[in-house]
Design a protein around this nucleic acid. Structure first.
Lengths: 137, 137
DNA sequence: TCTTGAGCCTGTAGTTGCTACAGGAGTTAT
DNA sequence: ATAACTCCTGTAGCAACTACAGGCTCAAGA
């Protein structure tokens, strides 16, 4: 009387493999409500399906693009409400682009400073270093 | 017989003001050993001097340049050991510059992607958005 | 002198976005 | 039957702070 029907659906490790997402991270996303709690087998094992794969990919891609968890929550909300419009989406995405551009210019400033400082350093075995001087200034 | 000698040294808030460092952050740096424990008054108040100001500025500047706490620990170690050479300092600084450059190119990739996606979006009130499509892909 | 308010002290919890571990139960292969 | 594997849960840890609670100390005004 044991079930021979192969359980339909993906287990944690399979969802992890399909998406490249760390297995623990998936659970974390469920805990914070970014991913829905999936149905379970009688023994409590999670069973995912293609909707989970799609949603997780959406999340991962958004993370890759530098969106924070709460920003993603907002995007998913728009998706779920189904009343998303280009205008709404743009409204959320543009400030994010601005942030990224700001980060880039910050890093570039730092890069120039650091590169210039390193260039001044002889790289020899002398006990004075313009890098430390620059840091101390 | 009360002491009329004004207490020499800076209190927390004064060190904070001089360096622009958040007052709690100073204590944090002491806790993790990045800043030395300062002497105290009889009542336990911290008393800083110019050496603390200099060291804190060094730390803050390094943080600004994107060095992590442990990297700064390493730099301070070189400073303290007094046997720093240009060669040693360069050795620690160059990989850091490489990291920053990697971060910049990552962010630029993201920026291009995001900018391109936003450009495809009409910004109108229609219920289909290429941004979401791109994220879901 | 008493009171008020600012500033100091400590330890601890919260933040973001995960990652890792402990200890136990279920499943699969030999 | 037993080993090896995956799953389950809660919890602790990471970076680098920031903020809060509860209690002292200190200087100045009424």
């Amino acid at each position: 009387m044991t079930e021979h029907v192969p359980v339909k659906g993906l287990q944690r490790s399979q969802l992890s493999n399909r998406t490249g997402c760390n297995i623990e991270t998936i659970r974390y996303y469920e805990n914070i409500g970014l991913m829905p709690e999936p149905p379970r087998t009688s023994k409590g094992y999670r069973l995912y399906d293609e909707t989970h794969v799609r949603r997780l990919r959406f999340v991962l891609r958004s993370r890759e693009l530098g969106f924070g968890i709460n920003e993603i929550r907002g995007l998913l909300d728009l998706v779920d409400r189904k009343c998303q419009t280009c205008a709404e989406i743009q409204e959320r995405t543009k400030p994010h682009l601005a942030e990224i551009r700001a980060k880039i210019s910050d890093l570039r400033r730092i890069e120039r400073l650091l590169a210039r400082t390193i260039a001044q350093c002889s790289g020899e075995d002398v006990p004075e270093c313009p890098i430390l001087d620059a840091l101390a200034a």
